[in-house]
Amino acid sequence: MEPSEITLNGLQSEVDDWIQTIGVRYFSELTNLAILMEEVGELSRLMARNYGDQSFKADESADKIPSEIGDILFVLTCLANQMGISLQDAIQSTIKKNTKRDFNRHKNNPKL
């Protein structure tokens, strides 16, 4: 059976349900920010080894990259939930802002 697609609102609800039933409670916002930075660091390490000049350690592989991205999304969702921020609204606002700001910027960039 194929997993169903999840919306951003559904993601926020699913993470909240998990926190309430399995995670007991949210960590503080500051703790979750620190965890988010840790997860970004773990992704950065794998990216540097897979796409950069470093080599993998014996217990590392690029296969873990999707898991690290998932960890980042999970913790970011926790933070959004804690602060009452809709990820849907946030990304729509960001796309609108970037579109207005960059409408011709990249088209006219000879480096691209």
Rank of each mutant, 00 (worst) to 15 (best):
N9G: 03
I65V: 06
G84T: 03
E14P: 00
L43P: 02
D89N: 14
D59N: 10
L43Q: 01
V15W: 08
L73Q: 10
R105C: 13
E2L: 11
M37W: 06
S61Q: 03
K64P: 02
L112K: 14
S13G: 02
T99E: 06
L87F: 09
E60F: 01
Q92E: 08
E5F: 12
I35T: 06
H106Q: 14
S44F: 02
G10I: 09
K97I: 12
K96D: 09
W18M: 03
G41W: 10
Q20E: 09
Q92V: 11
D63F: 11
Q88W: 11
E68V: 04
L8H: 06
K97S: 07
R25E: 09
I19L: 04
L76G: 01
Q82W: 13
M47I: 14
S86M: 15
N109C: 13
T21Q: 14
S28F: 09
W18L: 07
T31Q: 11
I95C: 08
L76H: 04
E42S: 00
T31P: 02
N108D: 08
K100T: 09
K97T: 08
V75L: 07
A62Y: 04
R25D: 08
Y26R: 10
G10R: 07
I69E: 07
E39G: 03
N109A: 12
L73H: 06
K96S: 11
R101K: 15
I6F: 00
G23Y: 05
L36A: 01
Q88I: 14
D63S: 11
T99W: 14
I85F: 15
E5P: 04
D17W: 08
D59R: 12
M83S: 09
D71G: 04
L73K: 09
D102H: 14
L87H: 13
S28L: 10
K64A: 03
A58Q: 05
T99F: 15
G52V: 00
D63A: 11
Q54S: 03
D53R: 01
Q82E: 12
M37P: 03
T7G: 02
M47T: 05
F74C: 02
T94Y: 13
Q88G: 08
L30M: 13
A62L: 06
T94K: 15
V24F: 14
K107I: 12
L87Y: 10
D16E: 06
T21S: 11
D53C: 05
N98I: 11
L73S: 04
V15D: 03
L8I: 12
S86F: 13
D89C: 13
F27M: 08
G70L: 08
V15C: 04
D102I: 12
A58I: 08
P110H: 10
G23D: 04
S28D: 07
F103E: 13
G52Q: 03
N104T: 15
I91P: 06
S86E: 09
Q20G: 02
E14Y: 00
L30C: 09
Q88E: 15
R25T: 07
F27I: 04
D59P: 08
E14D: 04
